[in-house]
């Protein structure tokens, strides 16, 4: 049970003057239940890659297997794939359209052909999961703030109860509080329901403490693919491609360079603190 990508290539506007190779020879496997982060500079192909996973974009060459089945095989139901692999787009404005938030969230499950009460039950649950207050349910989605819109958009996908949840920059344009809030909710969902989550982001700092694995994209290639602490060891290379490791990494690396045996893989301030204290205890300061 997983998503498997083999030798995937994608070229935009093939055969025109504006040809653009967006992805080159991508090979990945996303096992079930994993919380993965995809990171890359703007234009590195993150959005393009994830749109392949639910069949919205068809690869120029290569194959994708969902639970062992080739999604490009004849007769494979894309509609079913899309109900299992939920994708929340970068901009919530692109999907909100109904008269009120609640009806909008119902759109997804309704398309699955579920009975009305099931649809509504799912919509309520999804709205509760993203932490949107009840007073907004009957409001027009266009009257919401940026963060609330984003929550409504995520709820719209969650209501379909997908097995895999992919979020394209769910925190873009949010304040730090709103950002942490949404990411916490997603992490909670991942824990409670055990769904596979793929989180696309610009910023290491944001996702470092949530994900089990980081895929770094650069110009359409996969540059690094490992657990966060391993990826951050390459902080110099990350800088070269316009990204940065969390600030804690820099502090720890510098301390190590100056002779302290700290754990350079620490990712949160708490971990770093513990490691530094332990170290200091050892040398007896």
């Amino acid at each position: 049970m997983s998503i498997k990508i083999e030798h995937l290539n994608y070229i935009y506007s093939q055969g025109t003057a504006y040809e653009k190779q967006a992805l080159t020879d991508i090979n990945l496997e996303l096992p079930n239940g994993q919380f993965t982060g995809i990171i890359g500079h703007t234009g590195s192909g993150k959005s393009t890659l994830i749109q392949h996973l639910n069949g919205l974009v068809k690869a120029t060459s290569g194959a994708i297997y969902y639970n062992g089945e080739n999604i490009y095989a004849e007769g494979y139901s894309m509609k079913e794939l899309r109900s299992r692999v939920g994708l929340v787009f970068q901009y919530p404005e692109y999907q909100l359209f109904e008269v009120d938030v609640f009806t909008d969230v119902c759109f997804g499950p309704k398309n699955l052909g579920l009975p009305k009460d099931e649809v509504e039950a799912r919509a309520y649950e999804a709205l509760r999961q993203v932490g949107l207050k009840e007073k907004y349910y009957k409001k027009s989605p266009f009257e919401l703030s940026g963060g609330q819109k984003r929550r409504a958009a995520i709820a719209g996908i969650l209501a379909m109860q997908p097995e895999v949840l992919i979020l394209d920059e769910p925190t873009a344009g949010l304040d730090p509080r709103g950002r942490d809030n949404i990411l916490d909710q997603i992490a909670l969902l991942h824990e409670e329901r055990g769904i596979t989550v793929v989180l696309v982001s610009h910023s290491m700092e944001d996702i470092a403490k949530y994900v089990e694995r980081i895929i770094v994209m650069q110009k359409g290639h996969v540059r690094f693919d490992d657990e966060p602490r391993r990826v951050f060891e390459h902080y110099r290379e990350l800088e070269q491609i316009g990204l940065a490791a969390p600030q804690v990494t820099y502090v720890m690396q510098e301390l190590k360079k100056r002779g302290m045996q700290v754990d350079t893989g620490a990712m949160t301030i708490e971990e770093a603190r513990a490691s530094i204290l332990a170290c200091m205890g050892q040398v007896g300061i």
């Binding site: 639910n54 899309r82 999907q95 759109f107 398309n111 699955l112």
Partner: peptide
């Protein structure tokens, strides 16, 4: 695309 991701046809 965003609506197709929600099962629109």
């Amino acid at each position: 695309k965003a609506q197709m991701a929600r099962g629109a046809d």
